[in-house]
Simulated scan of single mutants.
Amino acid sequence: MSARLNSAQPYVIGLFRVVAGLLFAVHGAASLFGVLGGAMGSGGGTIPSGTWPGWYAAVIQLVAGGLVLLGLGTRGAALVASGSMAYAYFDVHQQAALWPIQNGGELSVLFCWAFFLLVFTGSGAFGLDRLATRRTAAAQEPAAEKAPIAA
């Protein structure tokens, strides 16, 4: 049973990455473009361009979420996303109360830890990172292996 679960791990991580990236990117798109209900907490609409920290957080959400969704530069994008959610929790939510259930910071905490996990696991299956890795490995094969053997 354990071997079957282990063989499915890259696929489950890939699906996890897709869902987390999509949800994160949707938050950014909602805040920046007013889609899907617009900026949360403002009754819809968008966050004014350049406002700190909301607009910058939305840009990070859209870009990092999109990269994680595609599995392109997953580890770096996930690190930036995780850090932005840690900042959101400690700067915004924790001022109201200590525990996430008390201060409304559950989503920030979950996103922070989900993206932190992806920093260490990578993109899993279905990611564009894997295509880039395969191409790089193929390009680095020694020329002797590629050359035909002379008889």
Rank of each mutant, 00 (worst) to 15 (best):
R4A: 10
L5C: 03
N6S: 15
S7C: 05
G14C: 12
R17P: 03
G21Q: 10
G21F: 11
L22P: 04
L23M: 15
L23H: 12
A25Q: 05
V26F: 00
H27Y: 06
A30E: 03
S31L: 01
L32R: 05
L32F: 05
V35E: 05
L36H: 08
G38V: 06
A39R: 00
A39D: 00
A39S: 00
M40E: 10
M40H: 08
M40P: 01
S42G: 06
G43D: 05
G43N: 01
G44V: 04
G44K: 03
G45M: 04
S49A: 14
G50A: 04
W52T: 03
W52D: 04
A57M: 14
Q61S: 11
Q61I: 02
A64P: 10
G66D: 15
L67W: 14
V68N: 12
L69V: 10
G71W: 10
G71V: 08
L72T: 07
G73P: 01
R75Y: 09
G76R: 03
A78K: 12
L79F: 13
A81L: 15
S82F: 03
Y87Q: 00
V92W: 08
H93L: 02
Q94A: 13
W99H: 01
I101D: 11
S108L: 01
V109A: 09
C112S: 11
F115E: 06
F116V: 05
L117A: 15
L118P: 03
F120S: 01
T121R: 12
T121M: 11
T121W: 12
F126V: 00
G127N: 03
A132M: 13
A132K: 11
T133I: 14
T133H: 14
R134C: 02
A137N: 15
A137V: 15
A137G: 14
A138I: 13
A138V: 12
A139C: 06
Q140D: 04
P142M: 08
A143Y: 11
A143G: 07
E145V: 05
K146P: 07
A147H: 08
P148A: 09
A150F: 11
